[in-house]
Design a protein around this nucleic acid. Structure first.
Length: 516
RNA sequence: GGCGCCGUAGCCAAGUGGACUAAGGCAGCGGAUUGCAAAUCCGCCAUCGCGGGUUCGAAUCCCGCCGGCGCCUCCA
């Protein structure tokens, strides 16, 4: 079994072979931290976090970097409106971003380099490009000369002459060629500025990614990721300047994820919705408005409505290269489908007295959960499902297929339980062991997708304990009524509770309740 | 105008030449179970946008058409 990945550069699925055996160097373009994150900002991180989890599971030592763009026009404008410094705004939004990543379980990132902390390296790279004749200075601005790079356009598969014919690139008198892009921008008064050989200024957008990725990962990366929207011009430019600078291949595998979009309305929070001169709060309201009619809203608000796990599964349910239409109904549906897993986990814990989330699940493929000693049929079923899970993941990280397998695994385990607990009898020691192994496998595979790693936080009020005790009283009274065959009363209790979204389940071993 | 993507059941979605008489989820329906439910299990629910072609064989490849979308604007 080999891992195959789709490479934008070659437009083909290729066998994954890292440059240095056993090591993977991975870079993902991160956010410009100028406004609160919306769910679209989480798509890339969730996908590449999952990719890192799988690569790690396969035994690779993975270094994963996401950059933080903390200087740029949008930040400058926004900070001005808010009357704070660019740095203040950037740090605040960066915190918001980190919090969201934590919430949704993205915790495999090794470095979050900030652009502003790598200015000297950028200046050095720009100087090198000038020396090599790939860049030129005009009045304190430095541009990359695309005509000096015969490879320019190879990533996005565009030809320079065609691009120029497109006539949408507005000609700037100062550039030698309309497609040339800024490496260094002279700063206007009042803007953040750093000293450079070309006078005070700040870096262009693309150079930070070249410099920071190479600083933390070396001159050639194994994987470079980002949204499809970044393919051109950002990644094309990044690639051009990097290779012209080092003379070496910059990236072996370019991976691009599809974008989240408001149904038929273009990308969420994208070019169609200009937040340019809105305040933070207005921007958020604007986003909510979109959400009301199918757009995005700030992730924070979304987390109030849906569990992070549901949002994560919503993202991973679709193949990463496909676009996803955002819709709350869809997320709600996914959330509902998760309930079955939570019930299984609960059942498992009641049946065995174990803590599912504390089960020591293997984290490497070559140490996968042993299914020795399980009933033959059950064991075969689990093995087949496990193989299918790997097949999916090996095929360009087909998380959608892998999720499907997880659901089948759930059904297999439920079926096993159903076949072993016909009456009230407790599980035999053997069956308990079998169940434990099956659940360990579930945890192992789900963990690769970043699911079921922590007990979900149920919306809990301060008087939750009291509520539980009160419901228990009602359950006890109802049980007595049932024992006396007073079903009318028993049903009335159940119906009244249902009105309050409290669902009762009568099981052989007693009545269980849950909120819905 | 250039480059590219997509169209699979009521909805979402995997599969992209042969184990497909097409995963999985949500919703729905039937059965087992239950005092009745809930939960769970079993079963049912798609000739893969349309028309041609290639092939022993196509959801999967080619051509045409229809419909939807992205990029070519410092938007993840």
């Amino acid at each position: 079994m080999t891992l195959r990945v789709y490479n934008t550069l070659t437009r083909r699925k290729e066998e994954f072979q890292p440059i240095e055996p056993g090591k993977v160097r991975m870079y993902l373009c991160g956010p410009t931290v100028y406004k609160p994150a919306h769910i679209g900002h989480l798509v890339g991180p969730v996908i590449f976090d999952t990719i890192k989890r799988y690569l790690t599971y396969l035994g690779y030592d993975v270094t994963f970097v996401i950059n933080i763009t903390d200087v740029d026009d949008k930040l400058i404008n926004r900070a001005r409106e808010q009357g704070c410094s660019v740095q203040e705004l950037a740090r605040r939004m960066e915190q918001d971003y980190f919090e969201n990543l934590r919430t949704i379980g993205v915790d495999t990132v090794d470095h979050f380099p900030r652009a502003t902390e790598h200015i000297p390296e950028m200046i050095a790279a720009i100087q090198r490009l000038i020396e090599k004749g790939h860049a030129y200075e005009v009045d304190g601005d430095v541009y990359f000369d695309v005509t000096k790079d015969p490879d320019y356009g190879k990533l996005s598969h565009r030809r320079l002459d065609e691009m120029l014919a497109g006539a949408r690139v507005e000609a700037d008198e100062r550039k030698r060629n309309p497609a040339d892009f800024a490496l260094w921008k002279r700063s206007k008064p009042g803007e953040p500025a750093w000293d450079s050989p070309w006078g005070p200024g700040r870096p262009g957008w693309h150079i930070e990614c070249s410099v920071m990725s190479m600083k933390y990962l070396g001159e050639t990366l194994d994987i470079h990721g980002g949204g499809l929207d970044l393919l051109f011009p950002h990644h094309e430019n990044e690639l051009a300047q990097s290779e012209c600078c080092t003379g070496k291949p910059f990236v072996k595998y370019w991976l691009h994820n599809g974008l989240l979009r408001a149904s038929g309305a273009g990308k969420v929070g994208g070019a169609h919705n200009r937040y340019g001169d809105l305040t933070e709060q207005q921007a958020e309201q604007e986003a909510v408005k979109l959400a009301g009619s199918k757009g995005a809203e700030s992730v924070k608000k979304l987390f109030e409505k849906f569990s992070p796990e549901a949002i994560r599964l919503f993202i991973l349910n679709t193949h990463y290269r496909s676009p996803i239409d955002f819709s709350e109904e869809r997320i709600a549906e996914v959330a509902r489908s998760l309930e079955g897993f939570y019930r299984l986990i609960e059942t498992f814990e009641e049946l065995t007295g174990e803590d599912f989330y504390a089960l020591p699940a293997p984290t490497r493929r070559n140490q996968t959960t042993s299914l020795e000693g399980l009933p033959e049929e059950f064991r075969k079923e689990l093995e087949t499902l496990r193989d299918r899970f790997f097949e999916c993941m090996d095929d360009d990280f087909n998380t959608g297929g892998a999720v499907g397998v997880l659901f089948e695994l759930r059904r297999a385990i439920n079926g096993f339980i159903a076949s072993r607990t016909p009456g009230t009898g407790p599980l035999s020691a053997e069956d308990r062991t079998a169940l434990r192994k099956a659940m360990t496998l579930l945890k192992e595979l789900a963990g690769i997708l970043g699911l079921f790693r922590k007990r979900p936080q149920r919306p809990a009020g301060a008087d939750d304990q009291l509520v539980g005790q009160l419901i228990q009283i009602l359950i006890d009274l109802r049980s007595e009524a049932r024992k006396n065959r007073n079903f009318e009363l028993a049903d009335r209790i159940r119906d009244r509770l249902a009105e309050l979204h409290i669902v009762l389940e009568d099981r052989p071993d007693g009545t269980r309740w849950r909120r819905e």
